Amino acid sequence: MNILVEIVGWTGALLVLGAYLGVSSGRLTGESAAFQWLNALGAAFFVLNTWWHGAIPSMVLNIIWSGIGFVALWRIARRDRGVRE
């Protein structure tokens, strides 16, 4: 189980790093679904890893971070369907 949790954690790190690299290089925007998916999933993967290791402050941060990303994805989906808020 330890190795699975570590793989999930490292995958989360790569996803968040990829999002940051994409925005910093101009390949993604903060409003793109790809950026939000990378961040939301990366943070969600960090939640499992930080919980496993007992890093509660980091876990709470990543729950919030993931939530922000999934709310942004919901708004992007609504925008793309032409639904007004």
Rank of each mutant, 00 (worst) to 15 (best):
G42L: 05
I63V: 15
A33F: 09
A34S: 06
A34N: 11
M1H: 13
V16I: 15
R79T: 03
L28W: 08
R81N: 10
I76K: 03
V83Q: 15
R27A: 14
A34M: 14
L4C: 10
P57F: 08
S66C: 08
A43P: 03
L28C: 04
G69V: 04
V5T: 09
S58E: 11
G22S: 06
L15F: 08
V16R: 09
L15K: 04
R27Y: 10
F46N: 03
A40C: 02
G26I: 08
A43L: 04
W65R: 02
Y20R: 13
T50P: 04
W52Q: 06
A77E: 02
L48I: 10
V71L: 12
V60N: 11
I64V: 15
R75K: 10
E6P: 01
W52E: 02
T11A: 08
I68R: 08
M59T: 12
V71T: 07
V23E: 09
W52G: 01
G18A: 13
G54M: 10
F45K: 02
L41R: 07
E6T: 13
R75N: 05
S32H: 07
A55F: 07
A13H: 10
L73Y: 04
I3A: 14
L61S: 11
F45H: 02
A34K: 13
S32N: 01
F70W: 05
R79L: 03
V16L: 12
N39S: 06
I76R: 04
G22P: 01
I68N: 07
R75F: 02
R81G: 07
V71I: 15
A40V: 01
I76E: 00
L48Q: 07
I63A: 08
G42M: 00
E85G: 12
N62F: 06
L28A: 10
R81D: 09
L61H: 13
A44S: 13
A55T: 09
N2G: 15
F45E: 00
G22V: 03
F35V: 05
W74F: 11
R84P: 09
F45L: 14
S58C: 11
L4S: 14
A34E: 15
A34F: 07
W52C: 02
L41I: 10
F70Q: 00
W10R: 13
E6H: 12
S58Q: 15
F46V: 03
N2A: 12
A40E: 03
E31W: 04
L38E: 02
A55G: 03
F70T: 05
M1I: 05
G12L: 06
I76W: 00
A33C: 07
V16H: 00
V71G: 02
W37E: 14
M1V: 11
F35G: 00
I76F: 08
G22L: 01
I68M: 12
I3D: 13
W65T: 02
R84M: 12
F45Y: 06
N62P: 08
A13N: 13
P57K: 09
W52S: 03
N49V: 05
S32P: 05
M1E: 10
L15Q: 04
S24K: 14
F45P: 00
D80Y: 05
V60F: 14
V47S: 06
D80I: 02
A77F: 06
Q36L: 09
W51Y: 15
F70S: 01
V47C: 15
L73V: 00
L61C: 14
I64G: 10
